[in-house]
Amino acid sequence: MCLAIPMQVVEIDGYNARCEAKGISRDVSLFLLQGEPIIPGDHVIVHVGYAIQKISAEEARSAWELYDAIL
């Protein structure tokens, strides 16, 4: 259940962010990243609908290689 996936932020409204990964779009809470500057285009690790960390685009890509293989 600690499965967390990288997503790209598309739009931000307060603590809510529209995020996308692999053509899937989700509402994600940025509540746990308060104080961290996040802008559209950034990548975040999302767990149960909450972004828990900002990551680089490169990390997001390498993580997806695995999820492609196992999901």
Partner: peptide, 30 residues
């Protein structure tokens, strides 16, 4: 997602909604 529990409670304002939440730190933070 915990946010779905909130949405569920809003959809059913006259019912007691209980969110049974198991998980490690990663899940407990949300």
């Amino acid at each position: 997602s915990p946010q779905e529990a909130v949405a569920l409670a809003r959809q059913h304002p006259h019912r007691q909604v209980v969110f049974f939440a198991a998980g490690f730190e990663t899940t407990m933070a949300p």
